[in-house]
Amino acid sequence: MLDGQVGQAGSAGDFEAVFVTESGVERRVPWEWLPEVIGELGRPARSFPSYRGQRKFPGWYWSSTMGRRIGFESWVERDHLVTLDFDASVVRIVSQPFWLLWPHGGKQRRHAPDFLVSSADGGVLVLDSRRCELIGERDREALETAGRACAALGWRYAVWDRLDGVVVNNQRWLAGYRHPRCFDEPVAARLLEVFQLPRPLVEGAELVGDPLGTLPVLYHLMWRQLLVADLSVVLSHRTVVRCAPPVANLARVANLADELAAGGRS
């Protein structure tokens, strides 16, 4: 169960959803209403427990996509959150977005997915983060039910296991430079000029100036994917970096400072 829809579509009438708005109001609605109120989903539908001796590692991650902190409950979730934040097609991420409710054996069961992700093309992905070897039968039933419920709405549903270690580590390194404070417009413009010709990372940084000043901007541009490299291999000073398609660069870099100041994502 990795990066794909799980199960066949069920009847939307079999399900309900409970979510919490940005203002803290809890709402319970028929499942088929959820696409109409998706913009209201704001706060996590459940809390992130933290206690001494727990095996998971919950925390908060500042998302450049959202311009605010998003909660996670494990390091697997954190890595998935970084990947979603890095994805330029993602425009919205909600953690623990809702409770899915459904009848089961005369009782009511519920499941809270880990993330709801909206894309620029209007698509919606509901995502659960799990180490697949640890999924038990009861959890598997809940995940399969979530897949059927999402399919009834025309939404994608996926269960992600641990991601490729090299890619994750590279994305986490670049995430250290995701904040707008790492952007400097004159340095960024010069870096984009220098990397019109693909070249090693540090070589390009040195051509622009002192690497202590240029590298944070370079990494920020890589996070923004104005500069790109093969992240399936370990990022190093020898990594070959190049500009993304030049037309997009010229259009985006001119407005990047204003977009960052407004809290938006380029």
Rank of each mutant, 00 (worst) to 15 (best):
169 N>A: 14
250 L>R: 15
160 W>A: 15
203 E>V: 09
182 C>Y: 15
207 L>P: 00
237 H>K: 09
116 L>A: 09
204 G>Y: 01
68 R>G: 05
46 R>S: 08
217 V>G: 13
117 V>T: 04
242 R>S: 11
63 S>I: 03
184 D>L: 05
25 V>C: 09
129 S>H: 13
155 W>I: 08
210 D>Q: 05
129 S>L: 12
209 G>E: 05
130 R>T: 04
9 A>D: 12
24 G>W: 00
63 S>L: 04
264 G>M: 15
104 H>P: 00
50 S>Q: 05
56 K>E: 08
95 S>N: 12
52 R>A: 10
100 L>E: 12
46 R>A: 02
172 R>D: 01
48 F>D: 03
176 G>M: 10
158 A>F: 00
196 Q>P: 02
95 S>C: 06
95 S>I: 14
111 H>C: 09
85 D>V: 04
30 P>T: 04
39 G>Q: 00
54 Q>V: 01
244 A>S: 14
207 L>A: 14
19 F>P: 00
121 D>T: 10
88 A>T: 10
8 Q>T: 10
64 S>P: 01
30 P>R: 14
49 P>V: 10
258 D>W: 13
168 V>H: 02
143 L>I: 05
179 H>E: 14
175 A>T: 10
233 V>H: 10
242 R>N: 08
237 H>I: 06
157 Y>C: 06
199 R>P: 00
140 R>V: 03
125 L>C: 13
11 S>C: 09
113 P>L: 12
196 Q>A: 07
215 L>I: 04
161 D>I: 01
255 N>Y: 14
1 M>I: 15
